[in-house]
Simulated assay, not measured.
Amino acid sequence: MTENVTQAIAVRDNGPAAQIEQYRDEYAALMPSHVNPDQWVRMAVGAIRGDVKLVQAAQNDIGAFLRELRTAARLGLEPGTEQFYLTPRKTKGRVVIKGIVGYQGIVELIYRAGAVSSVIVEVVRTHDTFRYVIGRDGKPVHEIDWFGDDRGDMVGVYAYAVMKDGATSKVVVLNRRQVMEAKAKSDSRNSEYSPWNTNEESMWLKTAVRRLAKWVPTSAEYMREQLRAQAEVAGELTGSASAPLPPQPSVELDDEDDGPIDGELEPEGGWPDVAQPGTAA
């Protein structure tokens, strides 16, 4: 009996949640300064413990799971939420964890840049009233009967930002056909775990806000320029326009992939080797 309990504890301690705790400091080193590492780790642990399918997928390839969390940590997004989905994904015959940046995650990156005061992204349904003429209207007029029993099917989606100087960004408007074209480019569209199948409205919103992100500053590009400008004002750059700045994540927002939206950024000294379940860390 004692031996069985000891074995059960060993298995538990090598599970995905324990691995997150083990690499807490490495994740914390990647996070933007405004993110609370303790809260982030609690959310990650809670997300994996709250879903049996996620636990199994993570155990199938614990290294892949921890690498997906690394992307969430570097972006400063909350894992297991609409900022950063954790979804099972079948790869080479087995189910593993895939991290997917959600529409709220992209909105967060836009806000974090500091150039916008608000981001509006909404789905338009059959019984809504929607008016927008390019060149005439500054922004769409979208009227919704909030007390109606049924707004109807989704027929379109739009997104725009109000900048801090009061200007309105480019307005992105997509109809159903355009959203379906974006969906067709997703390699996960046929997966039962894909947000396209589990939370379709959020993916319509994401399709629009990804397009919007091409027209407004995102955290990487905008903050890099802000840092340079601040340094110039402070006299910290000695006339060299190419003086090095702290590394910033590079955000790519194309429509062809619903996975992580930027490249890797290794912590100083590299990422530690990840122990597989049942092995020593």
Rank of each mutant, 00 (worst) to 15 (best):
R12L: 15
H127V: 07
R112G: 08
M163G: 00
R74C: 04
A234D: 14
D149V: 10
G114S: 04
P79K: 11
E82I: 03
R210P: 01
L174A: 05
S191P: 07
T279E: 15
G270Y: 11
V96F: 05
I9A: 13
V251I: 15
A220W: 14
S186H: 08
A113K: 01
G114C: 05
G15A: 14
L174Q: 08
Q22A: 08
N14T: 14
R89A: 13
G278M: 08
Q226R: 15
S117G: 09
V251W: 14
T2G: 12
E266R: 03
K98W: 12
P217V: 00
Q22N: 04
A281F: 13
L212I: 03
A57D: 11
R151F: 01
P217G: 00
G270E: 01
V251Y: 15
K53V: 15
Q19N: 11
G269S: 06
D137V: 02
D165A: 00
D25G: 03
G263L: 08
E122K: 07
I62Q: 11
I110D: 01
V209F: 00
D25A: 12
E221A: 12
V171A: 02
G278D: 06
G114H: 02
A281H: 06
K98Y: 12
R210W: 03
V155G: 07
V171I: 01
V116A: 02
P88V: 07
W40N: 11
I144V: 15
E26I: 08
L30Q: 08
L86C: 11
E181M: 02
D137E: 07
R125Y: 02
D262W: 13
P79Q: 09
A280K: 14
D262R: 08
T279W: 14
P37V: 09
A241N: 09
F65W: 06
M154P: 09
W215L: 04
I261K: 07
G76P: 13
P88W: 05
D145G: 05
L75Y: 15
D165C: 00
P217Y: 00
V124C: 06
R89K: 09
T91S: 09
T238H: 13
G259Q: 05
L227N: 13
G135T: 00
Q104W: 04
G269T: 05
G63S: 10
E256T: 09
I120W: 04
D262S: 12
L265E: 05
P217A: 00
S202D: 12
P272K: 01
